[in-house]
C-alpha cells in the first residue's frame, strides 16, 4: 500500500463509537491490557477497576480502594464481563480481539462480547500477579481521563490539528 505509507493524513486509529457510560464509565485498550472502571451496582461512591492482559488474559478486579472483588477469585467476574461488553461497543469486537490476541481474532466476522469472554475463559486465565499495582495504574489513567473535562477550550489557532482530519463515518 504505497499510497498509505506516503500519506500524511491516513487514519491510524478509528474513532471510538458512542456508548452509554452509566455502568462502565471508562474502558481503554492500553499498556497491553483491556482495562476499565465499572460502577458498583450497590454503592454509588464505589467503582471496580478491572483489567485483562493481552496474550495470557491475566485478569484483575479490585475496588478503587484496592480491595479484591469477591467475584474474581477463580475466573472473570461480572465486572470484567461488563467491561468486555462495553469495549466491544466502543471499539468493535475485531479491534478488541486483535489487541487481546484471542483465538476469535482470526475469524471473518467480528466476535461478540460473549464469544470474546468465552474464548478467554476457555484458556483458564490466572489472576494477574501484579493485580494491586495494575489497579493503581488503571485508576490513575481514569482520573487522568476525567481531567480532560476540566481543560478549557481555546480559540487560538491549532495548526497541528490539520494532521487529524475528522474520521468521517465510522466503519
Amino acid at each position: 500500500m504505497p499510497m498509505w505509507e506516503e500519506s500524511s493524513l491516513v487514519r491510524v486509529v478509528p474513532t471510538a463509537r458512542p456508548r452509554k457510560l452509566a455502568k462502565v464509565p471508562f474502558v481503554e485498550l492500553a499498556a497491553g491490557r483491556l482495562q476499565g472502571v465499572v460502577s458498583s451496582g450497590s454503592d454509588v461512591s464505589r467503582v471496580y477497576v478491572s483489567s485483562v492482559a493481552s496474550g495470557d488474559f491475566a485478569f484483575a478486579c479490585r475496588t478503587n480502594n484496592n480491595r479484591p472483588c469477591g467475584g474474581a477469585r477463580g475466573g472473570f467476574c461480572n465486572h470484567i464481563g461488563a467491561m468486555v461488553g462495553e469495549a466491544v461497543l466502543q471499539y468493535g469486537g475485531a479491534r478488541v480481539a486483535r489487541y487481546l490476541q484471542t483465538d476469535t481474532a482470526d475469524g471473518d466476522a467480528a466476535p461478540t462480547a460473549q464469544q470474546l469472554a468465552a474464548a478467554m475463559s476457555a484458556a483458564r486465565p490466572q489472576q494477574a500477579a501484579d493485580a494491586q499495582a495494575v489497579t493503581g495504574q488503571v485508576f490513575a489513567r481514569f482520573l487522568r481521563h476525567l481531567a480532560y473535562l476540566e481543560l478549557p477550550a481555546t480559540t487560538a489557532p491549532l495548526p497541528e490539528m490539520h494532521w487529524f482530519p475528522t474520521a468521517g463515518a465510522v466503519a
Binding site: 474513532t15 463509537r17 481521563h145 473535562l149 477550550a153 487560538a156 490539528m161
Partner: peptide, 26 residues
Amino acid sequence: VRASVSAPKPDTVVGAGVWQLLRPHL
C-alpha cells in the same frame, strides 16, 4: 481569514457530540 476553536475531550464524546464542546466559545 479563518477562525478556530478547539477543546480537549474524553474519547467517548464523538460525532455530533463534539459541537457542544466548541459552540459556546465561537
